Simulated scan of single mutants.
Amino acid sequence: MTQKLVAGIEPPYYTAVFTSVRPESPEGYAETSVRMQELVREIPGFLGYESARTPGGIGITVGYFRDLESLESWARHPEHRAAKEYGREHWYESYSVHIGKVERSYGYARD
C-alpha cells in the first residue's frame, strides 16, 4: 500500500484507476508488482501512483499520467501486457479499469 499521497500535480492530467479482487497473497504477485512499479517509473509522463487494499481482497491503484500518450505507452508496454495476461489467468477474480481526465485537483495535509 502507498503511505504517501500524490499531490501538487497541475491539471490537466490523466488517471488510470485499476480496481481488482484477488486472493491476499497469490504466488508471484509481489515480485511482479515490484517489477511493474520499476517499469512504470521509466515511462515519460508518469507522475506517480496510490494504492490500497482491503482485508477482503479488494484493491485500488490509481496511476497518474501527464497525458494520454504516456498512459497509452504504459498500457502497451510488453512486460505490463504480459503481467496483465498472467494476472487474468492466475491472480484476479475480477478487475476494472477506468481512465479519466483530471481538470481540477486540490488537497489537504495536516502540518
Rank of each mutant, 00 (worst) to 15 (best):
K4S: 12
V6Y: 03
G8Y: 13
G8P: 10
E10Q: 13
E10M: 09
P11L: 10
P11M: 11
P11D: 06
P12H: 06
P12T: 05
Y13E: 00
Y13L: 04
Y13G: 01
Y14A: 06
T15M: 03
V17P: 06
S20N: 00
V21Y: 12
R22S: 07
R22D: 01
S25F: 07
S25D: 10
S25K: 15
P26W: 15
E27Q: 15
G28N: 10
Y29M: 05
T32W: 09
T32S: 14
T32K: 15
S33Q: 04
V34M: 13
Q37T: 10
Q37E: 12
L39M: 08
R41Y: 12
R41M: 05
E42T: 14
E42C: 11
I43D: 02
P44K: 12
P44M: 15
F46K: 02
F46V: 06
G48T: 03
Y49K: 10
A52Y: 08
A52D: 06
A52V: 11
R53T: 01
T54A: 00
P55Q: 06
G56L: 02
G57T: 02
G59P: 06
I60A: 15
T61R: 00
G63T: 04
G63K: 01
F65P: 00
F65S: 00
D67Q: 06
D67P: 04
L68S: 13
L68Q: 07
L68K: 09
L68T: 10
L68C: 06
E69R: 05
E69A: 13
E69K: 10
L71A: 00
L71E: 01
E72D: 11
E72F: 06
W74H: 09
W74K: 14
P78N: 09
P78F: 14
P78H: 14
H80E: 05
H80K: 05
H80I: 09
R81Y: 11
R81A: 12
A82K: 12
K84Y: 07
K84C: 05
K84F: 10
E85N: 10
G87F: 08
R88Q: 13
R88S: 11
E89Q: 14
E89D: 12
E89R: 13
W91E: 13
W91I: 09
E93Y: 11
E93V: 08
S94G: 08
S94M: 04
Y95A: 01
V97G: 03
H98M: 07
H98G: 03
I99E: 01
G100K: 00
G100D: 05
K101F: 00
V102K: 00
E103C: 11
S105C: 14
S105Q: 12
S105F: 04
Y106F: 12
Y108S: 14
Y108L: 14
A109C: 07
R110V: 01
R110E: 06
R110H: 10
